[in-house]
Every structure is written in C-alpha cells, then in structure tokens.
Amino acid sequence: MSHPHEPVGEWWRDQVAALHRWGRLVLRDEDDSVHQMRVTVRRLRSVLATYRPLLDTEQTEPLRAELKWLAALLGDVRDAEVLRKRLRQWSAEHGPGPSGVDALRAALTERQAVGRARLLPELDGERYRALTAALAAADGFPWSGSAPGKKKLRKRLRRDWRRLAAAVDAAERADTAVERRRQLHEVRKKAKRTRYTAESLREVFGKDAERLAEAARSIQSALGDLNDSAVMIRAIEDIPGRDDALREFLEAEEAAAKAAEEKFASVWKKANRSKVHGWLNP
C-alpha cells in the first residue's frame, strides 16, 4: 500500500477518480466524455507498463488486461467521432456532399452507433464495476513494496525516453514511405508512454518532468494528425465506387498526412534537446 502522501500514489488516485467521473458522463452522452475517458484509461495502462518491474504484478497484470479491454471499447467510439468531425469540417468547406460523401458519412455514423451500443451496457455492467473496484482497492500506486526513490523512478522514465528516440531513429532509416509511416506510428505510441510517465512524476521532478511531458505531448499531437488522416484514408478506401467528391476528400487527407509528416521533423528537433531530456542521464 502506498503512503498517503506518496506523489505517484496521489496521481494514481486522481486518475482512478477521473475514470469514475468520465464513465458517468459517457453514460449521459456528454460532449468529449469518450475522449477524456479513453485518455484516462491510456494513462493508467501506460504507467502500469512503465513501472512493471517495481509493481505487484499479481495485482497489476489483471488490471492491465481489463484496461486494454476497456480501451478497445472506447476506441471504437472515439475513432468514429474523430472521423465524423473531420468529414464535417471538410463538407463545411466544400458544400453538401454527393453520393460518395453521403455514403462515407453514413458508414461513420453507423460505426459510432455500433460502438456505443457495445460500450454503454458494459459501463453499466459487472465487468466494469469489478475493474473500477480493483483500481480503487490499490489505494495509491500498487508498488510491490515501499514506494521507490527518485533514482529508480528516473530510470523508468529514462527508459521510456530512450525507446522514443530509438523509434524516431528507426523512422528516419525507413526505406519506404509505407515503412516510415509504420515506424512513426510506433513513435506516437512511445511518445504517449513517455508523456504519461512524466506526468505521473510532476510532483517528484517538478519543472523537469513538466518540460519532458510537454515535449512528448507535442510529438504525440503532431503524429496524431498523421494518424487521423491515415485512418480516414482507410475509411474512404472502404467505400465502393468513389465519386469525384470522395476522391477530392481522399486527396485532401493524403496531403494532410504528408504535411503532418513534414511538421514532425521540426517538432522532434525542438523536443530532442538537452534542456528537455538531459536531466534523465545518471
């Protein structure tokens, strides 16, 4: 059990409380609630992975598995929300869409409806209640013993950062555009983990952790734009018999994906500075 004033334990309790709060708002269909609940689940999953060698894994591995299940349910709904928003923005600029855009709109609306039909009963079911009860039962972060000191915590964050940097190197060495995008997707995942770990350590490392979390967030944001375009491209390609308007939308998303890739280079250059991550070195 964590000490009541142990900083990471306090952060954990805040996230568990946020999960409860957002879950209630999702059931009420409040705006942005699915997105916020999904982010909270990601934070919990991410830190459980980062700190795994320091945790009571008999307790935390089942939590990770159940959080993964919940993340998948939320992801189905949230991805459809994002795509529908992108389509609305494009349609507002280009006027009412003909058959191809209408078909895409209908497909995305159905995708969101199906996702919500799966999600909502689960949020009111026994499996979700058991998960939230187990998360709360930890009463702070579920360390295997006493809370680790700064040295061990810094080591876990340093490992996340180095994995992020290695993923960027792999993307820069990619031989094809397809491989580069695949590697950049890995960069985005590593950036999220680095960000969430740094956020959990704000009370431990102060401004250093805040600066690193912000750098990782900027990477995540830039590559999130690329990911949204890539997912939309796949959704458009699934529509049979694309017409001129849908082909125009596809071209716009491909251009947006390319622009996001180009933007990432400058974002990474700014993030990969000694001022941001030099304090992690032993």
Rank of each mutant, 00 (worst) to 15 (best):
M1L: 10
H3E: 15
H5T: 12
E6L: 12
E6M: 07
V8A: 06
Q15M: 06
A18E: 14
H20R: 05
H20K: 14
H20V: 10
R21K: 13
L25I: 10
L25H: 05
V26S: 00
D29A: 15
S33V: 07
V34W: 02
R43Y: 10
R45V: 04
V47W: 01
L48Y: 06
T50H: 08
P53M: 11
P53E: 13
Q59W: 09
Q59C: 14
T60Y: 01
L63D: 01
L63W: 00
R64C: 09
L67D: 00
L67E: 06
A71I: 06
A72Y: 01
A72F: 09
L74P: 02
G75Y: 02
D76F: 05
R78T: 04
E81L: 05
E81S: 13
L83T: 09
K85Q: 04
R86L: 13
Q89T: 13
W90D: 03
S91R: 14
P96A: 09
D102S: 12
L104Q: 07
L108T: 00
L108S: 00
T109D: 14
R111H: 15
Q112K: 14
Q112I: 07
A113V: 09
A113K: 15
R116H: 10
L119I: 08
E126R: 11
E126L: 07
A130I: 04
A130L: 15
L131S: 00
T132D: 15
T132P: 09
L135C: 01
A138L: 04
D139M: 13
G140H: 05
G140C: 15
S144F: 01
A147H: 05
P148K: 03
K152W: 02
R154F: 03
R154Y: 04
R158K: 11
R159A: 12
R163D: 11
A166R: 15
V168Y: 00
D169Q: 14
E172P: 02
R173C: 09
A174C: 08
D175R: 14
T176D: 12
T176A: 08
T176Q: 03
V178C: 07
V178W: 06
R180D: 02
R180M: 09
R181F: 11
R188H: 04
K189L: 14
K192C: 06
G206A: 13
K207S: 10
D208F: 02
A213L: 07
A213R: 06
E214N: 09
S218K: 04
L223D: 00
G224K: 04
S229D: 08
S229Q: 02
S229G: 05
A230I: 07
A230W: 01
A230D: 07
A230C: 04
I233W: 06
A235C: 07
E237T: 07
I239L: 13
R242E: 15
A245F: 06
E253G: 01
E254I: 05
E261K: 10
K263P: 01
F264C: 06
A265G: 15
V267P: 08
W268I: 02
R273A: 14
R273D: 08
S274L: 11
K275S: 11
H277A: 14
G278L: 09
W279D: 08
N281R: 10
P282H: 10
